[in-house]
Amino acid sequence: MKISGIESILLSYLPKNPPRDGLSGIPTRDVYLVKITTDEGITGIGEGFALGSLKSTAIIVEEILKPLLIGEDPTQIEGLWQKMYRTTFRVGRRGIVLAAMSAIDIALWDILGKKAGLPVCKLLGGVKDSLVAYASAGYYQEGKGLDGLAREMEGYRSQGFRAAKMKVGGESLAVDVERVRVAREALGPEVKLAVDANNAWDYSTALRFARAIEKYDILFFEEPLSSDDVQGSIKLARDCDIPIAGYETEYTRFGLRDLIVQDAVDIVQTDVIWSGGISEARKIGILASTFGKECIPHFSAGAVSLAANLHFGVSLANINLFELTVDDNPLRSELSLGSIEVRDGMIYVPDRPGLGIELNEQLVDRFRVEI
């Protein structure tokens, strides 16, 4: 079997009330997809992170990666990953290049699963069929206020979620501490609460915040600092009692290695559409397990990303919790014709061959962006 074609699909959705996290606003929900075709008629779909960089990611694929892959055997996934990574050495080790590689790698796993007639998680030696899902939202939004945040969190509790996560870092410490208090009370004692600063703070600010919210029984404190500040994160993980989680913004196992080895994080987070695909995310998860650390897949994008992160997540014993971003986004909830089941606080991996995703072509046409 040979790769015969690679097509970029660019999708963008404009939320009615755009959310904001601790670092910046999110005016659009962008989804970059690749469709890889083969001479045997098997097609694979992959997704790469592309918030605000849809066209740039497509150009990376078209100009750099596609020429490396046409005519190659799509089942030689590790070899093709290494070929892409070595060839792009002088271009970048984070960001758009890794996002483009992620989309390619995921599509190759989709092809291999369809060729074998098995879900991707089975090819990876999956250890379970579901994960505990936590509702990830709690964004800053115009007009929401404390009452709106409380209603949001009460909604997650009533839907059966066992944990929820909220954004911090976008307001003063006093305001954010009060927001955490309101969320904690709305969730009640049985539902766990995590916070995510999206790299917004320095060490001293993050430590003051952590000490102010420790009494609210926080599950974890995600990406409090820049992922460049390894020494700051080492100190923070040592000095506060809340587990520090991160850093998907470090992308590959090479960057996360120092954070893991030096105990700069207690919980390792990675995302198959940021890190270089399922292949690299799994290596990160295994590296985390070597140091006795839990791994949590990050997820905030489209339906293909959701499925791919789930297949990765159920393949490792040190992954038990899964991020399910639940804001307004049809590119997550409607892009696949076969929905992913969420029930009683659990999210279930698709059991169809490959990723188990079939694109809703009507939705693709509705939200497509031309290069």
Rank of each mutant, 00 (worst) to 15 (best):
G113M: 08
H298N: 13
A116E: 15
L51Q: 14
G188N: 01
A186W: 04
V91Q: 09
I70Y: 07
I6D: 02
E78F: 10
I3Q: 07
L118K: 14
A210F: 12
F254M: 05
N198G: 11
D105H: 09
R181H: 13
S158Y: 02
G255I: 04
A174H: 11
Q231M: 08
A264R: 01
A100E: 02
T28F: 14
A245M: 11
L310N: 05
D73A: 04
P224K: 05
S12V: 04
G79T: 08
F49W: 12
F291Y: 15
D217S: 13
I3T: 08
A308V: 11
W109R: 00
G145W: 08
P224M: 08
R184Y: 04
V364C: 04
P297M: 09
I26G: 02
I260D: 00
I104S: 04
K55P: 06
G285L: 03
D202E: 13
R179A: 13
L310V: 07
G345H: 03
P353G: 09
I60N: 00
L69S: 05
I278Y: 11
K114W: 03
I286D: 06
V349A: 14
V31C: 06
Y203I: 01
A133L: 03
K66Q: 10
A281R: 04
L112H: 03
H311N: 07
L51T: 03
K215A: 12
S315D: 13
L225R: 01
N198D: 13
I234K: 11
A194V: 09
S136N: 15
L337S: 10
R20A: 15
V120W: 01
K293Y: 03
D258T: 14
T87S: 14
E152V: 04
P27Y: 09
K192S: 07
R29N: 12
A317H: 09
